[in-house]
């Protein structure tokens, strides 16, 4: 790790000013940033530590809207009873991520910006990585191991997978993010925060230099109550998803009024299965329709040799999450 300048501003505008400087990175919980600096993937000249901006730690679970400050800790939100009761998928997608130690340190704002776990990105001995070293190629696509790679959203330049869990819940429930930058404040839909790799996988978000995620918010909808995050992984805990689904269902009698499906462990960016949602709306939720929704969700997947298993796995995870939510509704 090379030496770097460090500042911890007490005011948001000082932070954005500092963060807009050349080769400067923002750090909050540090669970990704410090890791990537230690392994030489990132080598910033300066770090702007925003953990002193205590105004960003708060959150509010309202009746019409939920809003979370970007510095709220993963563990705090995961363990909040109002979140557990009112939006189980959100709580579950937080506590099924990482380890207790990491969840106590990591923030929501940092979590949604988590970098890929693609091994070729993380090991600087590989010359080829378009994300780390633009224009150098992609070792994964050049005969590499691809069992952890994206089957949605990849390009010829990059097939790295977005590894997070929380983002799948946010994308499924129409979250918005507020960004504070040198040019002022803007609020954008969460599904516009991340960008597909296309030709430029080094660009992962629409964040401008100096822009800081300050808040994540979403409207409260009935489907939140009957929601869950189902995560499939080879190890029971502390492992990234092989496939996951954040789902929420609102029924009107035997008819699906609203349904939300976000997919994890399968795409370059947080992924919403809109076609699968549409297939269920206005109809019954049965084993058959749930399985059909799973198939539709993965209809357009583009697997690599190592990642083909994610198609049947992802389809079953979607179906399983929908049917589990449905059966719990029956219990109420």
């Amino acid at each position: 790790m090379k030496n770097f300048a460090y500042s911890r501003p007490a005011r948001l505008d000082d932070a954005t000013d500092a963060a807009r400087q050349e080769n400067t990175q923002i750090i909050a919980g540090g669970t990704t940033m410090v890791d990537l600096m230690k392994i030489g993937v990132l080598a910033p000249d300066a770090l702007v530590d925003i953990s002193g901006l205590s105004a960003l730690e708060g959150y509010e679970v309202g009746t019409n809207r939920m809003r979370f400050g970007a510095l709220a800790k993963m563990s705090t939100v995961a363990d909040d009873q109002a979140v557990i009761d009112g939006f189980p998928a959100l709580s579950q997608s937080l506590w099924k991520a990482a380890s207790p130690q990491l969840r106590h340190a990591a923030t929501l704002g940092g979590n949604i910006l988590q970098r890929t776990r693609c091994p070729y990105f993380r090991d600087t001995a590989y010359k080829q990585c378009n994300k780390r070293n633009p224009g150098s190629g992609c070792a994964a696509l050049d005969g590499g191991v691809t069992n952890l790679h994206a089957i949605f959203g990849g390009s010829e330049a990059c097939v790295a997978m977005y590894p997070g869990d929380l983002a799948q819940t946010l994308v499924a429930f129409d979250a918005e993010v507020t960004l504070e930058g040198p040019g002022g404040t803007r609020t954008i839909p969460f599904d516009r925060l991340h960008v597909l790799p296309a030709e430029s996988p080094e660009i992962e978000t629409v964040l401008e230099p100096g822009e800081i995620v300050t808040e994540i918010a979403m409207p409260v909808v009935p489907a939140m109550i009957n929601s869950m995050y189902l995560k499939a992984r080879d190890r029971e805990s502390y492992a990234f998803a092989s496939a996951s689904a954040a789902v929420g269902v609102e029924m009107d009698g035997d008819t699906v009024r609203d349904v939300r499906i976000g997919l994890g462990g399968v795409a370059s960016v947080p992924w919403r299965a809109t076609a699968a949602e549409d297939s269920l709306k206005g109809g019954p939720l049965t084993e058959e329709t749930a399985r059909e929704a799973g198939r539709i969700a993965f209809k357009d997947a583009e697997p690599l040799e190592g990642s083909a298993y994610k198609i049947p796995l992802g389809a079953d995870v979607v179906a399983g999450a929908l049917l589990t939510v449905k059966s719990r509704m029956g219990d109420q």
Binding site: A232, L313, D316, V317, A319
Partner: peptide
């Protein structure tokens, strides 16, 4: 598991 195919 029937849906996640997790082996425990």
């Amino acid at each position: 598991h029937k849906y996640t195919h997790e082996i425990r």
